[in-house]
Amino acid sequence: MPQFFLNKRLIILLVSIIILVALIGFSLRDREQLTWPEQFLKDTTGFVQQILAVPTGYLTDFFENVRGLLDTYEENKELKKRLDELARLEVEVQMLAKENGELREILDKKDSLRDFQSIQATVIARNADRWEELLIINKGKTNGVEKNMAVITANGLIGKVKSTQQFTSTIQLLSSMDPTNRISAEILRGEDEESIYGTIEGYDEKRGLLKLKRIPFDAKVKKGQKVVTSGMGGIFPAGLPIGEVVDVEPDEFGLNQTAYVKPGANLYDIKNVIVVKRGMIKPDAGGNAEEEEEE
């Protein structure tokens, strides 16, 4: 009975389309936690990935070292120049830190937005289909990683924790297209001038730059100024470096400006990361928390 088979196939097709739509809808919802089968699968594969990541890590390191040898001379020259500055800076930082501590004591203000605890982690895998840039790291809930924590490398902010399992977590990079991904940022100017505030919203894929929006129209933003997190969003601590302003444009209505920020950290070549836990208490998630904000 060919007709009967035709019907059966049609039914299978229809049912699978319904399942597809339902599942996509289910997983696109803003979920507080993944379901336990998902967590279990991710942890189990994470275990295998971790085993395989060790030898490949050595291999990539080796290739990088060979490549690095070629630029050693140039780099050495540059680094020596910086080293002289570093000694001076170190003394200055120490003095400032001491002074800051003393002043805080006088004011009796103990906690700061800048305080954070860090969790070191290693990248064990990345999203294989490369549509959304996601990384999997080898630290999870048992190590104190929680959803929405900031993730940095030595050079600056790279993203936030998207979901956590017991032993692994998934990180969403700044370069992924997520409209709910907003970071309250601050443009640092000279010593006497006040900082300018804005929010990082979106990523210009063609130029590889972050968009820093909602800067007041009269603010004078210049190229080369440093951008850091402001900590006003309620989830990230203040003072994590993001990058450098490379371009400023008025936005479409002329009421605000948009600055283009070159991320300080390389958003592709990432091996070791630091998950940052904010020291100050978080405000309630309702309303003004930056990551939960809807467009």
């Binding site: 399942i19 597809l20 599942l23 996509i24 997983s27 594969t45």
Partner: peptide, 12 residues
């Protein structure tokens, strides 16, 4: 589950 986080696409 592991890579994309959006269930259903590769599944089908």
């Amino acid at each position: 589950v592991v890579y994309t986080g959006i269930l259903g696409i590769y599944l089908v």
